[in-house]
Amino acid sequence: MNMHATDAEAIAARGTAAPRVPGENSLWLLILGDMVIYAIMFLVFAYSYQQQPDTFAAGQALLNKSFGFINTLLLLTSSWFVAKGVRSIRRQPRLDASHWLLLALVCGGAFVVSKVVEYSLKINAGMVLTSNDFFMYYYMITAFHLIHVLIGMTVLVFMWRTARQPQVSADDVRFLESGATFWHLVDLLWIMIFPLIYLLGRT
């Protein structure tokens, strides 16, 4: 491929080549496997909702939807930043991607801060892990996701360091794509969790 081929040409050229998934193929074992664990959690949550509709509806009414909405915006934005970063890296000539990854990290950090504030407000108001089954699921599912956010942010730090190198190898690009894929998973999971725990249900 020509060194000075444009992004559009590069994408067009790839379109004629063999189909390919972003990142490395084996990573999808982790991505899809993680989705299976979450799918089971969501099913168990839905089943429990059916069993105790009053408790769950009452618990849901006590959640602050603004936090959930802001968190959704933060993760969607950070996913967009990561996608911009990976596009910059793929361009010929390559553009600096590190600032995009830094912005994604800031959004991730804001998500963590917002979650800590939300948890603190809930705990101070007496709604804790052991209050009832709704709050058990609320804390367990969102905390499991928060662990994903923290791991994803650790990966973003390494992605940022990789993107700052003067030269990036094919392996580095593969790592950046894999890391971006994982961050999109973190975003996707939240987009499932937000409506399920905060919005859906008996009105």
Partner: peptide
């Protein structure tokens, strides 16, 4: 080790997390 095995180990770690909170319930 094949690379898929590395990712399988990470997935296993996520599957273990559910046992961490047995003290609460």
């Amino acid at each position: 080790f094949p690379r898929w095995y590395g990712f399988f180990c990470l997935w296993t770690a996520t599957g273990f997390v559910g046992g961490e909170t047995v003290g609460f319930f």
